[in-house]
Design a protein around this nucleic acid. Structure first.
Ligand code: NAD
Ligand code: NAD
Lengths: 213, 213
DNA sequence: CTGACCTTGTGAACGCTTACACAGAATTCA
DNA sequence: TGAATTCTGTGTAAGCGTTCACAAGGTCAG
């Protein structure tokens, strides 16, 4: 029995992180206000889209003035829940997993990989970037019910099994680099980062562009 | 003055790599034919979408039969130009760059990182995963006019400069992991892989799902 | 305080993408 | 061969997202 239920579109949601990053950056530069037209130049999103997106969260701006950076930082920060730190686990400490551990979303203090797991005995019981790496078989012993998020960097062939196990331990948000599609439980959200597809699509698009000219 | 110009939508293009991977996999398993409904179960794309997509490349299937795997592999392979090997350079051999070099899209023989560059003297004049790493300053000496594609894994702050240099040497397709938006030449296509945004969007979506139930 | 100026928020049009549903074409099997 | 069955390709409609364009409302200088 709340208010008018102003649904936020998927497309808008996927842009919130970009808006948040931009306004935080501007705030650090000491900028106090911005208009949609100027923000458009910075992040390369049409100003009409920006205004439409912003308005779906309420009337954030002021006519003839623009938007207050502080308001935007506050609003998007709340939407992304940056005040409560998100504990994330990583599974698969190969090349990619190692890179993620070393970086650990350093710029975003709310995003934290807190531990990692691997099936390979040679890779476990050590620390990478300060984060402990445990045997995947000991997942049960290290998991705790406050952790709902995992990043996967395991081979495609291992993915289905790993996701099944993680779901059993309460994980319901997964970002994975293995493109193997997995049927998951309804409460689980999976985001595939498919680097090969991204590259192939890029190449196809670039080639098309060449042909046209 | 060609034929009917059957335009292929962006959404369809981004799915070609998925289709290609699936049909190659099926071919390796010895499958000879498939119907849209079955393929839908495998890759989790609605069968109507699959049929619509496929039909935009001509009449690939047969009523009452389905699609011949061999035809699909051939068709998508041609679209993605898998027969002519793509020479790619990598710039930025940090954690992520190293992981990319070690992997080098092993499963896709047409995608090849042929050399890498870094600005840090400690990281150059060596080989990683068999691929030579050169000083970024020597780009001119190593570039050749058959290379049009680059993958970037440099810090955001370095990105604009690096892209400018690459464009000057004929690069027109770039996949980058630094989210810093860059204004590029019109013939250049840039694809941003923004891991932080992907993760934040995932978390937002997953949190929403929790609230609803 | 006033008026010129500026910028938002949004109705409406548009274009792209997905989804439905089925006619017709090809297959399969007896 | 013929009839029942299968499955594509696509007309059509619905849904979603973007873009245009401007009225309404707030700003700000003087
Ligand atoms: N690195 C790239 O350039 C690249 C490109 C495209 C796709 N990918 C995909 O990303 C994923 C990770 O890539 P990578 O280069 O880090 O691979 P990698 O082989 O270097 O690392 C995989 C890690 O997963 C571990 N592992 C295997 N099975 C496991 C299990 N059941 N439980 C826990 N850990 C397990 C292995 O011990 C290894 O440490 C792969 O699926 C790969 O296909 C990577
Ligand atoms: N690793 C992650 O988990 C992660 C997550 C999100 C975003 N990213 C982004 O991906 C990019 C790469 O990440 P990383 O973890 O590999 O970073 P990194 O710091 O490990 O590596 C960056 C590399 O780029 C090199 N470099 C710096 N300036 C250069 C220049 N002008 N020319 C050539 N090389 C230069 C550095 O010497 C270094 O080797 C960064 O932009 C980072 O923000 C990484």
């Amino acid at each position: 029995m709340q208010n008018t239920k102003p649904r936020v579109s998927k497309a808008t949601i996927s842009r919130i992180p970009l808006y948040y990053r931009a306004v935080v950056q501007l705030q650090q530069e000491g900028v106090a206000r911005i208009r949609s037209e100027r923000l458009s130049e910075i992040i390369h999103i049409p100003s009409a889209t920006i205004r439409r997106d912003f308005s779906s969260f309420g009337e954030l701006g002021k006519s003839g003035y623009g938007y207050s950076i502080a308001t935007l930082v506050e609003e998007f920060g709340q939407l992304l829940d940056v005040d409560s730190s998100e504990a994330i686990i990583l599974v698969g400490v190969g090349g990619l997993g190692r890179a993620l551990l070393m970086n650990n979303f350093r710029r975003n203090p709310d995003l934290n990989i807190v531990m990692a797991f691997d099936a390979d005995p040679d890779k476990v019981n050590t620390r990478i970037g300060g984060i402990p790496v445990y045997p995947f078989a000991t997942l049960a012993a290290h998991m705790n019910p406050n952790i709902h998020t995992a990043i996967l960097a395991v081979p495609s062939s291992a993915q289905t099994g790993v996701i099944g196990t993680l779901e059993a331990f309460g994980i319901n948000a997964i970002m994975t680099f293995a493109p193997q599609p997995v049927a998951c439980a309804p409460q689980t959200t999976i985001r595939y980062i498919d680097l090969t597809s991204e590259l192939q699509t890029l190449l196809y698009t670039a080639h098309q562009k060449m042909k046209v000219r």
